[in-house]
Design a protein around this nucleic acid. Structure first.
Lengths: 231, 231
DNA sequence: CCAAAAGTGTTCAGGCTACACCCATGT
DNA sequence: ACATGGGTGTAGCCTGAACACTTTTGG
């Protein structure tokens, strides 16, 4: 018989706030699933589920994301842990939440096993959410806004090859204010973290823009030396 | 019979990284307790304990802090949740960690009920710690260094009345680099968040320094308007 | 009067902001 | 040819860094 500490043992879940960028609508999106089980059956909720006995919290978050939305290889970071008594009407549940950034290439999502349906919604104006998920989303937005300014995580929301205008739109959307084109370009190019590719944008009805990719290697080298990315 | 989700239910603890400032030794300190129970009986560890069924995580952190160290009214913020399988040798335990800042007035601590002994150690060079507490401490230090620069939490480590030199020492210790006296004073006074008191330092064998206090009210008003404190 | 820390201004360089026009491409 | 977004430089301002001496107090 396995040892068990003689104290209260709550249920523990992970929930993920998955952000995606919609450049067409110039909006930050969040992925929600429609619950097919009680409680809150039929409501929109963050993708998530119970932590298994033999997996770490990070692994649980990755697994739930894949199971519920078919998404893989997203950027994932622990956000905050919510555990107020009563946040789940049935039993006390501690929720370790993550926030995830998805390369915007495909904003299509396949719902799968656990969830009835998955879809993207405006992150700023989401529909009513199950449990305390509105509070979780708010915290995630706050973190994203704060973090995007001093860590180059914004790139996780863009396709691997992107134009400077797309990068600027990204920051304008997340920071919710307009940026000056010339100043923005000067600044991000000065970081030396954008590698110009031998490729141009395709299929546009105007002058094709230069494509760049983010230089992950150089960034990692620089940040070990105390370099601070800032926008 | 109460409802219970048919999934794994781990034990859940809160652990607190309590920082204090030792201006005499110019060092950041962390409070540790000596464990009087297995596992790791006799080792130094972060103060903490199991979450009760009817209390929130924040409440649990406050309660443990008071029970184990006699400390009250410290600044407390959730840090990170650690839950790797195997981090407790007996049973899987999820630990929601907090970091706490203690006004340095009294760096004495009374051990009480749960713990055999409580004492202050160098935060940079702690003794060997139980469980994965070394990793937790490291994360807390990282957070403190990052946060102190853009949020005025440093004041939580000083007595309510302090001199500009003490404030400068604090930042020098936390950021681990020397700061220029004149530039530092210009900058912090420009924030308008330091109120000069009609009092001077006492009992020193040299010119007595002006005492200040931090203007919490004004800060809250300004930060609602999007003001960003920076050092 | 000596030791110890408090207190105080100016100069210079680099970064940030504001701002407008020509260019390349597809239809 | 025109519509659409791509791409580029400069000038003023402000902020951050460097730097040394006088003042006050207690012993």
């Amino acid at each position: 018989m396995p040892f068990s500490y003689p104290y209260f043992h709550p249920a523990v879940t992970v929930d993920c706030v998955v952000f995606g960028l919609d450049l067409a609508e110039a909006e930050l999106k969040v992925m929600l699933i429609r619950r097919k089980l009680d409680p809150y059956k039929g409501s929109w909720a963050l993708p998530g589920g119970f932590v298994h006995e033999e997996e770490s919290l990070d692994e649980a978050a990755k697994r739930e994301l894949t199971e519920e939305t078919g998404l893989e290889s997203v950027w994932l970071e622990q956000l905050y842990t919510f555990g107020a008594p009563g946040r789940d009407p049935r039993e006390r549940v501690i929720s370790v939440t993550y926030f995830a950034l998805l390369k915007s290439a495909g904003l299509r999502v396949q719902a799968s096993t656990d969830a009835a349906e998955a879809a993207w919604f405006s992150a700023a104006h989401p529909p009513p959410l199950a449990f305390d998920h509105a509070k979780i989303l708010e915290k995630a937005l706050e973190r994203l806004k704060g973090k995007v300014r001093y860590q180059p995580i914004g790139f996780e929301l863009l396709p691997p090859k992107f134009t400077l205008t797309q990068l600027q739109r990204l920051y304008e959307i997340v920071l919710d204010r307009p940026l000056d084109k010339r100043n923005f370009r000067k600044k991000v190019l000065a970081t030396q973290l954008l590698l110009p590719l031998n490729e141009k944008e395709e299929g546009v009805a105007h002058r094709a823009a230069q494509l760049f990719r983010f230089d992950q290697r150089t960034y990692q080298r620089l940040s070990k030396q105390g370099y601070l990315f800032e926008v």
